[in-house]
Every structure is written in structure tokens, then in C-alpha cells.
Design a protein around this nucleic acid. Structure first.
Lengths: 203, 203
DNA sequence: GCAATTTCGTACTGTTTCGTACATATTTGG
DNA sequence: CCAAATATGTACGAAACAGTACGAAATTGC
């Protein structure tokens, strides 16, 4: 950031970034409504008023967590999708990178904050809007990557293929939460990638 | 049921079946944790103690709702999948039947109780187990239907195709909650059915 | 009509929840 | 060293929460 001219009062000691990380993990594990501000306070080490000052109320904390999670996922996994080479390999590597996030390192997969927990709380307009944005983003990136791989392909066929690839990713979150092993999903991802390639290569 | 020999005390006046229906709809709209017993009491018209007597505590109410929803969905949609004729048509009709449930008649789609809300609350062991059962059921039915259509097909290819079809259905719930139109999902369903057929017919 | 039996809602308990007022701590500016 | 400014947690209030004890209501058996 820019050179700050040394502010006036007591200097901030709170690490909002690592706090937000803890917020993400907690919401990811238990969803929105099941997490209390006391839970968040304990997980972050911040007092409840500090949470309010840093992130606003519970709803805006959750939306902020969706943004943080989405940004992390985009930075970690999108390069795999957008890499050069065969589309099938890019898709497979992208799915695997996302599975790395969905499964964290835990034995119990926390899944995806956006596709896994947000649908359950979409009666909140802000959550619904952010969920929709996330889906649109994945659809759009898939479409772009496929257009790049098959520039002369029928656009409506690319649309279908992109939606199927997104559906694979979305369903992975539910499957992970249900107890599927990471390896099992990785195989489904690779097979889905092959099938989508088949669709796009078909005359 | 069997002929009951006319019980002794005050006759029951509560319609547990329609009450469970109201329970399902409320959990479907707002998820598990966001629904209070007072909400359920108001929605069903039953007092809180009556809810406990009829369905046990909140967790077992939710699991009961998952069972009721799953049974309804199976009765309404599975015949479409298992119908004779082309696999693609059966899949398309099955997806459409499920979308009829996901979209109810409301303008705001409540989605799927199992695939939409349960992943968010899978830290509860019972919910996780029931969610896993639901996924396994869909996978298995898909596999059976595909084996029937292509008896000589490579089993591992059928496995892949079945998982992709399930993924489509699972993702529909998230998309519905995010605001997708029913028609849009219906088209994705039909296109996915065509693609899966393509995969299974490929040499 | 009276006891036994079953159903049902009122009313209560103790806990948890969100949100904030306010006092305290730590720095800079003069 | 004191005033202004900023950061932080303790402590509080009001509401919502899950769960249950208990009494009232409605029926059957005799």
C-alpha cells in the first residue's frame, strides 16, 4: 500500500487477514447459521466487538468469507485451468487443485464454502447474489477455456460443455461433505474431463 | 395399516403427515440451523411439545424431513428414469421431474432439501450419513438404468456416466437456489443427457 | 358417573444469542 | 507531560432458543 504518514492513536494489533482465514474455516465447517459470534470470537482470538469493527455483522462476515474463499480458490486453481496444453489436462488439473482446497488437510472434508454452504442460506439476498456470482464465474471461465481450445466449435455446444464442467465442481462439494474420498473425486474429475473433451471433439 | 382395536384415551387430532410436509418446506427454504422450533411450530400449527412427541428433537425432525423428501422425490421422479425407451429421454424426463420438485410452484426456488441444505450441516453425523445415502441412491439408480440401456458397455464407463448424471442433479439444486430459471436448468439437463448418451454410445 | 388412559398446550427453566455502551489501553502532537 | 485520537476488551441488556413439567381436555372401560 502507499506510505502512511504514521497514524495518531493506538496502533492496531489485530491481524485481520488471519482472522478472516479462521472465519472462512469455521463457516466452511458448520455453515452460516450454526456458527455463533462467540464461536467466531474463539476461533479468531478476537473479541466480539473487534469482530464487528473489523468485519461488520455476522452476515457481512459470511459474505466477506465467501469473497476471501473465492479469491483464494481463484488464485490457486484458475492458473491450472488456463494453462496451455490439452483441455482435458487443464480441466483435470483444475479439478485436482480445487479438491486440494475442498479437502484442506483434514480427514473430514470441509468442502466448498460457496457451493457447499451458501445454497442452504440463500434466503438471504446477499448470500444468494454472491452464490450466483460464483457460479457465473466458474461457468464463464470454463467457457473461455473451451473457446480457446476449440475456437471453431459451435457456441451452444461449448455452453453445454462449460455447464457440465461447472456441475462437476459444484457436485464435488456435496460429495466431499458426504464423505467421498479425495481420490474418488479426483478420478471422477479426470473421467468427466475426458468425456467433455469427447463432446467438444465430436463432429 | 392393521385394524386398530380402538384405543383408550383422547383421540389424536394431529395430522402428522401434513405437519411433516410443512417441516420439509421450512427446512428446504432456510436450512437446518436457521429454523427454530417456534418457526416449525408456527408453520405446522402444532405446539412445540407436540412436535417433540411426533418427531423427537430438532435433529431427528430434520433427518425425518430428509427421508420424507427423498421418498416423495423417488415416487415422483424415479418412474421417469426407469421408463422404457431411449436413455436420453429417460434422463431428460427424470431431470425435469426433479426440477418440478426443486422449483415447487414458488417464484423463489427452494431447491433440494438433501443436496441443497444438508451439505451445510454435515458436521452432524446423522445428516452426513443420510446425505451420503441419498447420493449413493442416485448413483446406483443411474447406474442401473444405464446398464439396462447398454448391457454390454464397459462397467467403468457406465460408472463415469452415472456419476456425471448424478452430478448434474446435485448441481441443479445449487443453481436453483442461486436464481437460475427452471427452463435454463431443463435445457442443461437435456443437453447433459445427450452428452452422456454420446459417451455411452462411443466405441 | 368415575377411574384409567391418552392427547395436547400453557407456562416455566436455564442457556445461548446478537449487538453495544463504556471504561481502559496505547499511541501521536504539541 | 497533557490532550487528542485510535484500538481493544469487559460487561451488560434484551431477545430468542431448546427442552420439559404439569395440568387441562377428551375419550374408553366398567
Amino acid at each position: 500500500m502507499t506510505e502512511s504518514p504514521r497514524k495518531r492513536g493506538r496502533p492496531a494489533t489485530i491481524d485481520t487477514q488471519s482472522a478472516m482465514h479462521a472465519v472462512v474455516e469455521l463457516f466452511r465447517d458448520k455453515g452460516y447459521a450454526a456458527v455463533s459470534l462467540d464461536d467466531l470470537s474463539e476461533a479468531t482470538g478476537l473479541s466480539r466487538p473487534s469482530l464487528y469493527r473489523a468485519f461488520g455483522n455476522k452476515l457481512s462476515m459470511y459474505v466477506g468469507a465467501m469473497n476471501a474463499f473465492g479469491q483464494d480458490a481463484a488464485e490457486l486453481a484458475l492458473p491450472k485451468l488456463e494453462a496451455d496444453g490439452e483441455l482435458e489436462d487443464a480441466l483435470t488439473n483444475f479439478f485436482d487443485a480445487m479438491l486440494g482446497i475442498y479437502y484442506r488437510d483434514s480427514d473430514v472434508a470441509p468442502g466448498c464454502l460457496i457451493f457447499g454452504t451458501a445454497p442452504s442460506h440463500a434466503d438471504e439476498a446477499e448470500i444468494k447474489a454472491r452464490l450466483n456470482f460464483g457460479i457465473e464465474q466458474v461457468d464463464a471461465r470454463m467457457r473461455q477455456r473451451m473457446e480457446k481450445a476449440f475456437p471453431s466449435c459451435d457456441p451452444s455446444r461449448i455452453e453445454t460443455a462449460a455447464r457440465m464442467a461447472s456441475n462437476t465442481l459444484i457436485a464435488f462439494s456435496a460429495r466431499a461433505k458426504a464423505g467421498a474420498t479425495r481420490q474418488a473425486l479426483s478420478e471422477i474429475g479426470a473421467e468427466s474431463a475426458r468425456t467433455i473433451g469427447l463432446l467438444l471433439r465430436a463432429a
